[in-house]
Simulated scan of single mutants.
Amino acid sequence: MSLLTVQGLGKSFGGVKAVDGISFEVAPGELLALIGPNGAGKSTTFNMVNGQIKPNTGSITLGGRELTDLKPREIWRLGVGRTFQIAETFSSLTVVENVQMALISADGRLFSLWRKAAEHKRAEALALLNQVGMAAQADRPCSVLAYGDVKRVELAIAMANDPKLLLMDEPTAGMAPKERNELMALTKRLVVERGMAVLFTEHSMDVVFAYADRMIVLARGRLIAEGQPAEIRDHPKVQEVYFGSGKTFEKKTPGTPSLQEAA
């Protein structure tokens, strides 16, 4: 049973069809990777699901609820979390305060002075930080954290509204290989534990093939392939359109595929 259902989604900018009638589903407990070359329509698709861009055609439903006429904040309140390519945190606040602010927002409460909210939701914030391995750094300013740790904090913030669906836009951008794998392994664990669905865009193919349950591939606004990683790796249309002739996926080590020139 799907949680997110996208049917016939389309968006044009002037005479250019950025997204051309694509359809796909994401089930609870599933990591679905949305990949494609530059200009494929990934960001436009992602932003339509999030409510930042209104589609010209098609529908987007979450658990049967239509999302296409809703604003991003309304979609967030329905249980859709999001992380961004460039991590977004308040650098002047501590780690725990960042998560508290997200929890307060999810709770729909406003405070005129931060000191009044200093202890509000602290226990819940610490519990989320514990899940992402950041509880020990709860009282440190975000400004002093390593980038990989900031991304973990952002993940905790994204889970503040207990999301059914998590949208992750280039979650490992700017991260070293070890950090990339640690973050995605953490995400995979949370998906299993919470039963939430994840739709993510990603350029690092080692991450995509190691952690995605399924993949959808776009090219020039159209969906050209959909399936499990092994199917996508060997898909001739993906090889031709996404990577260009003479390239293929080859594994350097088991479970860690990379894009290599064909021998």
Rank of each mutant, 00 (worst) to 15 (best):
L3M: 13
T5K: 13
T5M: 05
T5G: 07
V6F: 06
Q7T: 15
G10V: 01
G10H: 03
K11C: 06
K11Y: 07
S12Q: 11
K17T: 01
A18E: 09
F24V: 06
E25L: 00
V26K: 00
A27M: 07
G29P: 13
L31K: 04
A33C: 12
I35S: 08
P37K: 02
K42C: 09
I53F: 15
P55D: 10
N56V: 01
T57Q: 13
G63A: 10
G64E: 11
R73K: 07
E74K: 09
E74T: 09
W76V: 13
W76L: 07
V80R: 00
R82S: 12
Q85F: 09
Q85M: 01
I86T: 15
I86G: 07
S91V: 02
T94D: 08
T94Y: 02
E97A: 09
N98V: 10
M101C: 14
A102F: 07
A102D: 14
A102I: 08
L103R: 02
S105C: 12
A106K: 00
L110P: 01
W114L: 03
K121C: 09
A125P: 11
N130F: 01
V132L: 04
D139Q: 03
P141K: 01
V150H: 01
K151I: 04
K151V: 08
K151R: 14
K151H: 03
R152T: 13
E154H: 02
A156L: 09
I157V: 15
A158V: 05
M159T: 06
A160L: 04
A160G: 10
D162M: 00
L167Q: 04
M168E: 10
A173F: 03
A173Y: 09
G174T: 10
A185H: 12
T187N: 04
V192T: 15
V198M: 04
L199E: 13
T201W: 00
S204C: 03
M205D: 13
D206F: 00
V207P: 12
A212N: 03
D213S: 06
D213W: 05
M215V: 15
I216T: 15
R220T: 12
L223R: 15
L223H: 14
A225T: 11
P229E: 12
A230V: 04
H235P: 08
K237A: 14
V238I: 08
V238C: 05
Q239E: 09
E240V: 01
Y242I: 09
Y242E: 10
F243N: 07
G244I: 01
K247E: 04
K247F: 15
T248K: 05
K251L: 12
K252L: 15
T253I: 12
A262N: 03
A263P: 15
